[in-house]
Amino acid sequence: MTARVLVGVKRVIDYAVKIRVKPDNTGVVTDGVKHSMNPFCEIAVEEAVRLKEKKLVQEVVAVSCGPQQVQETIRTALAMGADRGIHVEVSGKDYDSLGPLQVSKILAALAKKEEASLIILGKQAIDDDCNQTGQMTAALLDWPQGTFASELVIEGDKVKVVREIDGGLETIKLNMPVVVTADLRLNTPRYATLPNIMKAKKKKIANMKPGDLGVDMTSRVEVLRVDEPPQRQAGVKVESVEDLVSKLKEAGRI
């Protein structure tokens, strides 16, 4: 039996919030804006908890890197069924420049420390849209990777993963330990129930710093500026299908 699963959970601006670029073009407005767990991370937590419910793993550990507030995100994971949390405290300038490479180093160090045999992450975060952390964590650990997973089956000391690729699906088999990243169709995450939210308050969240894990937080990627994308102007309303087709013909599109 797989002893331990590590799940990464990222705190991001809620998917329903309309993003505003700061007037000084240094980033987007985050103050006073609703934050939630990255939706792909929710799918990752759900998958880990289901594996535990099927008694295929013993313990689910939720990890998040960031300032104090990420503890809320860890609590959400605990309320969904994770057993305990680890908060890797990153704040100030280090948090501003925190990128997938540093997070991967933290996750890889934790995987070793916790002797995890499976790491499940979301395929990408909906803030930076990088889609890198799972692949990089696997690389740093020299583990295989099952990215963009829509199905995950543990078969002895191997994992079968069905992956979402451009033209359809692909099936691969990987030796454990392994990193898996969740795509949309892997599962539908549960809502945390009130009793489980209460129970989650008693679960433990350990606190540490990147330095405790020997991780150097230097970033060599600088954000020079953040801009609004060019706005597309609305065109005209057409009255009928005939009208539409003739306008498209005039424009040379059909």
């Binding site: 993003i19 670029v21 954000v223 500026r225 953040v226 801009d227 609004e228 994308p229």
Partner: peptide, 11 residues
């Protein structure tokens, strides 16, 4: 970034 709602210039 943010699903195309902002453009980020990175060095």
């Amino acid at each position: 970034i943010y699903a195309g709602n902002a453009l980020s210039t990175v060095k």
